[in-house]
């Protein structure tokens, strides 16, 4: 898969794929053995500060080389054609990236030209993109005169002005007030309609829950989880937290043909029957597992993340 040709991908082929990816900075281990397949759509990249989120994004852009392992975007290894891939990737950095003496329209048009869009088309697209992010009226104002929220929106605009297939957003809602965050997430949600795929890094789990289809969790450079945020299916999702080892329950559920995911001691069963609780009850009885809590899958992403972190740390 990782060596496949660009542009000849099945719709469900991973947009991002890594294999045994390691990145060390001297003695510091930023990423350790990350195996990842991210499907099309909007994906959240979750992790505490220092988890390796920004390093992963820089590896995807080809701005830094992996210590070992492979990383591919659209099926093309980044090491093979980083510049070509970057023409189809948008990037919104977490920190400052705006020249304060330029107008929003000039800068976004310039960002488009840097991605290879001819000048006349770049100006047209800059205007359209600033309209999309709600800055059409302010587009001829200087960036130094913008508020933090407006600057975040310009950063977002420059990342999509060249019609990328993948947009990497590093903490896009950071520094915004609640209303600004909602507006930002709403705009990001609209990217689906433009055929863009998004990898959206954040430490605010509510933002991820609100926007993403898939979530990738990193902790200390290790991959904790890469899974759909809302497991698909028509049946009922039942969560069971057990006191002991969850594997017997996982095995019992799997033996009954039920799709199962688990993180820590929390097992989530995707039952296709009308009453998933009955199947889970039978599996519990068969496995002899002791139940601590049980219910429909209403756990927040934070619960999942904390459970996965706890499990990973032993």
């Amino acid at each position: 898969m990782i060596d496949g040709p660009t542009g000849q991908r099945h719709a469900d082929s991973p947009i991002i794929e890594t294999r045994d990816l390691h990145k060390h900075f001297g003695q510091v281990r930023a990423l350790a053995g990350v195996d990842l397949k991210v499907p099309p759509g909007i994906t959240g990249l979750v992790g505490a500060n220092g988890a390796g989120k920004t390093t992963l994004i820089r590896l995807l852009l080809g701005l830094t080389a992996p210590t070992s392992g492979e990383v591919a975007v659209f099926g093309t290894p980044v090491s093979r054609d980083a510049a070509g891939l970057r023409a189809r990737i948008g990037y919104m950095p977490e920190g400052r990236c705006l020249p304060l003496d330029q107008t929003a329209a000039d800068f976004v048009a310039y960002a488009a030209e840097l991605a290879g869009i001819p000048p006349a088309e770049a100006r047209r697209r800059a205007s359209e993109t600033l309209f999309l992010v709600g800055l059409h009226e302010e587009r001829f104002r200087y960036l130094g005169d913008f508020s933090t929220g407006m600057q975040q929106r310009v950063k977002l605009a420059q990342s999509i002005v060249h019609d990328p297939r993948l947009v990497l957003l590093d903490e896009p809602a950071s520094g915004l007030d609640p209303a600004g965050r909602d507006q930002m997430l709403e705009v990001i949600d609209r990217f689906r309609g433009f055929g863009m795929n998004v990898l959206f890094s954040s430490h605010l789990l509510e933002d991820i829950e609100q926007t993403c289809d898939w979530v990738v969790m990193l902790d200390g450079g290790r991959l904790l989880r890469s899974a759909p945020l809302d497991p698909p299916g028509d049946g009922t999702a039942v969560s069971v937290e057990v006191f002991d080892d969850p594997l017997p329950l996982v095995a019992a559920l799997t033996a009954r043909g039920i799709e199962v995911t688990y993180a820590g001691r929390v097992v989530t069963a995707m039952s296709s029957s009308e009453d998933g609780f009955v199947e889970v009850r039978d599996a519990l009885a068969a496995s002899g597992s002791s139940v601590r809590a049980m219910g429909t899958d209403l756990r927040s992403l934070e619960d999942v993340f904390m459970a996965a972190t706890k499990e990973s740390n032993g």
Binding site: A83, G95, R96, L114
Partner: peptide, 18 residues
């Protein structure tokens, strides 16, 4: 200087520019 101090290099090098 401004490209460096205002962080604009992040934008340059995320484009097909080495």
């Amino acid at each position: 200087v401004p490209d460096r101090t205002q962080g604009v290099l992040n934008v340059y090098f995320s484009r097909p520019l080495g």
